[in-house]
Simulated scan of single mutants.
Amino acid sequence: MCADALLHGCLRDRLFRVETSLTGTALRVDVTDPRGERLPEPRLPGTGDSFGRGPLIVRAPAGRWAVGQLTVGKTVWAELDVTRGAGV
């Protein structure tokens, strides 16, 4: 998600932001960038494509993910389910 924000979501002099949070059941990662008009969409890239795998890579381990549009920019978030072992 961060690599996609750098490659596709950044504008000159505008940074992206990463936030993480942990609950008893999930790790959530939010990545916000200023390019709200460029929304990620899962697609199957061709074998010769250098780009286009980011959403697929995020979607594979994530229990949930989505894009939220902001007044300026967007936030892409993903939640990975976590389980706590005995004694933790």
Rank of each mutant, 00 (worst) to 15 (best):
T25A: 13
D4K: 02
L11H: 08
V67E: 04
G73K: 02
S50I: 10
Q69N: 10
E19R: 15
L27T: 05
G68D: 15
T83S: 14
T25V: 15
P34C: 06
P42G: 05
A5F: 02
G87P: 02
V31S: 00
R59I: 02
R17D: 05
D49F: 07
W65F: 12
I57A: 13
R17E: 11
G52P: 04
A86Y: 11
P55W: 01
T23Y: 14
L44P: 03
P61T: 07
L39A: 11
T32I: 04
V29P: 01
T25W: 11
D30R: 15
G63V: 06
E37Y: 09
G87L: 05
T23I: 07
G9Q: 00
A62M: 01
L56G: 14
L44H: 09
W77T: 02
L6I: 11
A86S: 10
G9N: 01
G52L: 03
T32H: 03
L7D: 09
R84V: 08
V31H: 00
T71M: 09
R12L: 07
G87N: 02
R17F: 10
H8R: 11
R35M: 01
R53H: 13
T83Y: 11
R12H: 05
V31W: 01
A78M: 10
R43K: 14
T20L: 04
G63E: 09
